[in-house]
Structure formats: structure tokens, C-alpha cells
Design a protein around this nucleic acid. Structure first.
Lengths: 129, 129
DNA sequence: CCTTGAACCTGTAGTGGCTACAGGATGCAT
DNA sequence: ATGCATCCTGTAGCCACTACAGGTTCAAGG
């Protein structure tokens, strides 16, 4: 009967993080032995795998929890999943855009330092209100 | 004599955040009135502006503090600034790469939901260990 | 059986970078 | 004097963890 350590190895989520996910209500706590140790069945480990995969894809914990709920509803419409995934995809696109802008500004800043000046033009740029 | 509110308006950093930056040692606290109110001179506001600009460019607070220190050292070599900025630029590049990968994986997931299935292939993909 | 060490438990605190609030004080205008 | 905006310090919460303290359980080896 897999303990939390085995669930951690099976899911790729650290033991402490699994406990945190339970506390935070992301996943239900599994049944326990008489001595209080957690016992995971295949469904329990599958839940953790789904959460892990969602986190790897950058979904927030709230989103991951929602997707888990959808997956455990036997007549889950794909439409709901699509809404969550598309929202997240749009957000990732926005972040990429913002980082590209940031990259350009930083590149400009680095170029200003190219000459190894002692009175740093980059710092002057930064201090400009 | 500008108070913290005016410093906030001049720098674009919220009052509460300015107080936090002081507590966190990012900027020195300014002189006070007899009643304990902060009083900002132009150098104090300039410091805040530099920190704001650094944060806008995605530098961590630690990096921002380092850049501020460099800016207040009259013989600051541009080389040090360049090292910090280039490190950060490389990190931004990595983040863009990671987000692009993420975007591709999410796009695949969304496509799997395109047909409005009830037994969601995307969820099946997510649950795969 | 005893010992040892790994893994388990709960609860708490800390990380980074804020943000909001409580409760009280100050300053200015009416 | 009153009212309101702004100031003060201290604390707590957000998100998603991560680490630790102090204690218990379990399995392997002598």
C-alpha cells in the first residue's frame, strides 16, 4: 500500500508539497492506517499526477483544482476544460509579450554599458524619473 | 518638504511599498519631522525612482539594491552594472523560451478540446503520469 | 528482542514582493 | 472645535511552496 513517499515518487511532487496540497484543499486527503499514515490507491496517485501536470503547464492551483474536479465528473464537458486552458494560453501569450518588451529594454541598457564607462550611462537611464 | 505621499506620487511606488522597501533595507529611511513624518529630498525621491525603474525592468529587489549602491558610488564602474544587467537579460531570455514551450503544450491541449467531446481527451492527457 | 535509521505525523515559520488593515497621531481647512 | 486626509507602526495575508521542530512509526539488521 503506497505511503506518501511512494506517492511523491510516483507523482513527482515532494512529500511536503503533497501535504500542503491537502491542507490547501487542492486534493482530498487519502485514507490512513491505524497509526495515521496516508495510504494511496491508484486513483489517489492519479490525482496527484494530474495536479503536477497542470502545475508544470503553469496553471494556478485554483485552476488545477478545477480541472481535477472536471476530470472526476464523469460527464465533464470538454468545453469547460477548453475555457480554462484558453484563458491560461492567452495569459501565457501576454506574459511572452511583456517579457519580449522587457528583453528589448534590457538589451538597450546593456548596450549603454558596452564601453565600460566609469560614469555609467545605464545608471543615468535608470535614475531618470 | 515632500512627505511620503508626495514621494509615492513622484516615484510611482505606493506608500505602503515605500515603507516596505525601507523595512527591507532596499532604500535608506529619510529624515523625519519632529512628529515622525518622513521628509524626502530630491536625492531620496531619485532613489525611489531608480528602484521603480529596476523593478519595472524585472530586476529582483536584491539586484535593484545593488544597482542603487553602484549608482551612489561616484566611481562606479559600468562593468558591474553590465554584469547584473546581462545576467538578468539572460534570465529573461530563458523565461521566454520556457513560456514558448509552455505555449506550445497548451496549444496542443486546447486543440484536443476543439471538438467539444464529453470524454475529454485533454483531461486524459493531463492525467497521464 | 533491541537498536538504528528512515520515513511518517502535525504544526509553525520562512521565502519574495508586495498589499491591506487596525489603531492611533498629525496637520490643515472649515 | 470638527472633519477629513494623510501620516505613523505593527501585523497579517496573498501565492506556492519549502524547511524545520519535535515526536511517532516501521522495517531491517544484529
Amino acid at each position: 500500500m503506497p505511503s506518501i513517499g511512494e506517492a511523491a515518487r510516483g507523482s513527482g511532487i515532494p512529500v511536503e508539497t503533497i501535504r500542503y496540497y491537502e491542507r490547501a484543499g487542492i486534493v482530498p486527503g487519502p485514507p490512513r492506517t491505524l497509526s495515521g499514515h496516508r495510504v494511496y490507491d491508484t486513483a489517489g496517485i492519479a490525482r496527484l499526477c494530474l495536479i503536477k501536470r497542470c502545475r508544470d503547464l503553469g496553471f494556478s492551483l485554483a485552476e488545477a483544482r478545477a480541472l481535477l474536479a472536471l476530470s472526476e465528473n464523469s460527464d465533464s464537458p470538454c468545453r469547460d476544460v477548453k475555457v480554462i486552458a484558453e484563458g491560461h494560453l492567452a495569459e501565457v501569450g501576454r506574459k511572452i509579450g511583456a517579457l519580449r518588451d522587457l528583453e528589448a529594454a534590457l538589451g538597450e541598457l546593456v548596450r549603454e554599458c558596452a564601453e565600460g564607462n566609469t560614469a555609467c550611462p545605464a545608471l543615468r537611464t535608470l535614475a531618470r524619473p
